[in-house]
């Protein structure tokens, strides 16, 4: 069966070791993690949302979802292909070095990135976009003096009001 790319989000109790449980589940059972993002979403309820982008055959994705739901601190798991059911964004910081960074700045502006820092011998761009567009932006910067990249991983949310 062909691999599918899915975004799984788990609403979890923000307690010690919860991220290790989720990550350990993926490594222990041989599942793939393409991107992982964690953040507290409700300090009063002490809940966090973990967003994992994974790929695999449909039966494996179904099994990952079921295994995540088994974890005791997991409240709920949603599984979607974000193209139809949800929206997702990722932020990247992209550093470009070189004597003349004019072309890099022009290209970055066209692609929606903004200059975050430009004080030294390098420029740091910030781009928040769909992961594929972040990838395109990095490729565009590569011949223009790209020297470092930092990506946050995907944050995703469903379109469903519930």
């Amino acid at each position: 069966m062909a691999n599918e790319r899915h975004t799984l989000t788990a609403l979890v109790d923000n307690e010690a070791g919860v991220l290790a449980r989720v990550v350990g589940l993926f490594s222990g059972r041989g599942y793939n993690i393409e991107s992982l993002t964690v953040g507290e979403v409700d300090p009063a309820e002490r809940t966090s949302r973990i967003t994992v982008v994974t790929s695999g055959p449909p039966a494996v994705i179904e099994q990952i979802e079921a295994q995540l739901k088994r974890l005791v601190p997991v409240h709920a798991v949603t599984n979607w292909t974000f193209a139809t059911d949800g929206v997702e964004r990722e932020m990247a910081l992209v550093k470009v070095a070189g004597a003349d960074r004019t072309e890099a700045k022009q290209t970055a502006a066209k692609l929606g990135a903004r200059v975050l820092d430009d004080r030294g011998q390098a420029t740091v761009f910030e781009l928040t976009d769909a992961p594929a567009n972040i990838g395109s932006f990095i490729e565009a910067m590569r011949p223009l003096g790209l020297c470092d990249v930092s990506r946050t991983g995907v944050a995703a949310i469903s379109r469903d009001p519930g």
Partner: peptide
């Protein structure tokens, strides 16, 4: 009783 066992090995 464990939902993760359904369809894990055999559909």
């Amino acid at each position: 009783i464990d939902a993760s066992q359904i369809n894990k090995v055999v559909r």
